[in-house]
Design a protein around this nucleic acid. Sequence first.
RNA 1: GGAGGAUUAGCUCAGCGGGAGAGCGCCUGCCUUACAAGCAGGAUGUCACAAGUUCAAUCCUUGUAUCCUCCA
Length: 883
Amino acid sequence: MKAVELSKSYNPKDFEERIYAYWRDNGEFKPRGGKEGHFSVVMPPPNVTGVLHMGHALNNVLQDIIVRYHRMTGVPTLWVPGTDHAGIATQNVVERQLKAEGLRRQDLGREKFLERTWQVKDKHHAIIKSQLEKMGCSCDWDHERFTMDEGLSKAVRECFVTLYERGLIYKGKYLVNYCPKCGTALSDDEVEYESEPGKLYHVRYPYSDGSGYIIVATTRPETMFGDTAVAVHPEDDRYKGVVGKTLDLPLTDRKIRIIADSFVSREFGTGMVKITPAHDPNDFECGRRNNLEVINILNPDGTLNENCPEKYQGLPAVEARKLVVADLEAAGYIEKIEDHAHEVGHCYRCHTIIEPYLSDQWFVRMKSLAEKALEALEKSDIVFYPKRWENTYQRWMESIRDWCISRQLWWGHRIPVWYCKDCGKEIVSREDITECPHCHSHNIEQDSDVLDTWFSSWLWPFSTLGWPEDTEDLKKFFPTSALVSAYDIIFFWISRMIMSSEEFLGKAPFRDIVITGLVRDKQGRKMSKSLGNGVDPLLIIDQYGADSLKFTLCYMAAQGQDVLIDNDSFKMGSRFANKIWNATRFLLMNLEGRELVDFSISDLTVMDKWIYSRFNSAADEIRKAMEGYRFNDAANAVYSFFWNDLCDWYIEDTKQKLLSGSDEEKNLQISILMDLLEKSMRLIHPFLSFISEEIYQKLPNHKGDVIVQHYPEFDSNLVFAEEVEKVESLKDIVRSCRSLRSSLQIAPEKKIKVMLRTGEGFKAMDLVKSEKGFISTLAGASEFIIDETGCEDTQGAVPASGAGYECFLFVKEAIDVDAEIRKLSTEIGKAEKLLEGAEKKLGNPQFMNNAKAEAVEKEKKKKAEALEVIEKSKAHIELLKSI
RNA sequence: GGAGGAUUAGCUCAGCGGGAGAGCGCCUGCCUUACAAGCAGGAUGUCACAAGUUCAAUCCUUGUAUCCUCCA
């Protein structure tokens, strides 16, 4: 057989793109496994604005690992990709473009504006798709969906109309979060609160009967024009008797009443609160309870309207505030002004301050939906990883509020409601209509609003599979198996998907909910453009390769913890990939002139059995880790098996045989190595997909594409506990010798005589004998003597000890005897500490009675070992002194 | 105001009832014919603080401090 040549260094650019195309063109991403059951994942659809950032990379890389792992177990596996139209975000992008051209969306008109938005969508979609491909995502592109494509739009219609028919959708006057800049209502979750320095204004409201005044505290004095009451706590002793009295509202000619309501905090300000139902959520509720008038004082653009005194009309709220305060002050209504930090809501898209605003909006009644979703958790139909998010989910569901789903935007799913201008009826329809079904008038008009983006994405797990049609995909792949998402959209998205799925399909949309952390910079800050601390996944791929990106993220993604990284973090994955590359390169070189032979367990040496055992354990660890979505543990197992076990010890051990063994020995050895390499590539594939495929296809014993090979499983035939113990013992001996050499500053090329003296209970004798050459090489021995009787002369040797053995290095050069003695003394010190602890426990009757038998055994062993170390070390000190 | 998370080596973080770990960085020595993106050896920690439970606490409980996040 000829050697297979690999380029000298790992260069992912040579093959990543080619391999991706190969997989895709060969249909490897399609669900084709033959086993029973299915494994399916829907990709959280990235927004078609902007490009993918490191958070997307983390999310998709983890999905890819899960998907590849399950695909290799042989079940039909489907990963559905897609993108989200992202209403406000995308519309903002287009509006920014227009602004640069001096235009507004109204100048274009709805149709032209939407055309332009579709162009933006197409552009960003192409970028996103290519990014996902570069990352190596093994999603089935034939299943790709977009939240505004035909099928999904149909699903949205079906959903809206059905909910309407079930009485779960209503239109109502409601106080909504309103962004004056975006010109739309926002859901509660789309408002971000930030603490901001502000003022607390104490304002005097005089009694109408002239008997003095009361003082109310407010942070937003301009809203006083919408005041319709002042409230006190019903049990506030300070204000007994004032309830029911009338006040003159300053700067106006209106009169308002004092009411009692227990929502008032007695501690805040003066304990008297002005009630502005149209402009504060709490006040709105209070107003409802007390049948207060609701006066809206704002225009849609956030300026004051005709319900305010004329001089303030048309002013933005912040401007009006200044003027109102000045006027109040001039009229002597201001008691005092103090600094006051308070939470201010901002639009999550454009960061403008949110105004609570009274308007007509569409809502979904959430209570019944939430109840079903809670039940799903109680019945364990859904499981969160990590589990603690279940509390968060539960609390949110329990305190659910109705969901405002209308948005005053153009980009999105138009609300399927028509109004007949002739008969005044409201028509909700699955199909577009041109005629009023009641009076047959053509004078009808569709509601101009669109639906919240999440109203389409909450259907994602089943709408992407064809719902509302009863498709094959839906039958085969729904419910999906796992959903991977960061914790920031549990409420926006995850919770709502569960609700919609329970409502429309009667089951949870997925079983496992894998919550990842957020990607942050090394200081723990969110990555953002303004901070300039972002790490671009594409640049990382360019620099280190997609496998490095993937493996590093996986290695760092511990149980939903945030992932803190910088550019250099990815060297870790890159080094590992390079190691894999070079180990393979070495092995493939050694194929020259060899024949692969069949072998069985009886042909295996102790070392062989050890490495197969280690491989077996690694496969088992990885399976357990994957089942619990502990990605870092899985990555760790892969890493330490390949590098520490296979490369550092096993391959090193085989070098000698590969160089100087007989042809037969060489053939057997390289065959075993090829078997291990083939298995390793399968083991590694979910975590470093490109390199493992590239290598796999070059192996003489490969069986097709690694992406669809069977994932290694725990094999009880490959458990060799005794051999493992022996090899660990051998490694220990080598380490002792190396450590001694190093501390004695013996140059690597200097070979010296080494003697191993073994005591009772030393099990690895046969291994030590058969691996004499290997030990000699690693220990730099010119001569390696085994002393089983303890009779050999140790005069003049430098000693070291371990469990069941002593090593003696016969050094002729002058050595630093004192330093060695000091080293031994610290070892004695450590051992004495251990001994003390062990003896204390063993001498403690309560320990002996209560502790587990294994714990007691362990302490006994500890004690024996400590005694051995102390004894030997003391003897060694004497030996050194005699030099 | 409520809830959750974090606090372990210089840095980033695993671990989680019985002798403190990884990667990076650092120190020493090696271009050993796969890999200097490597190899070998080494140093570094009152596991935030305080009580409690336990035969035994970095790990469980409670409290404190500092930091972060979410919700109101």
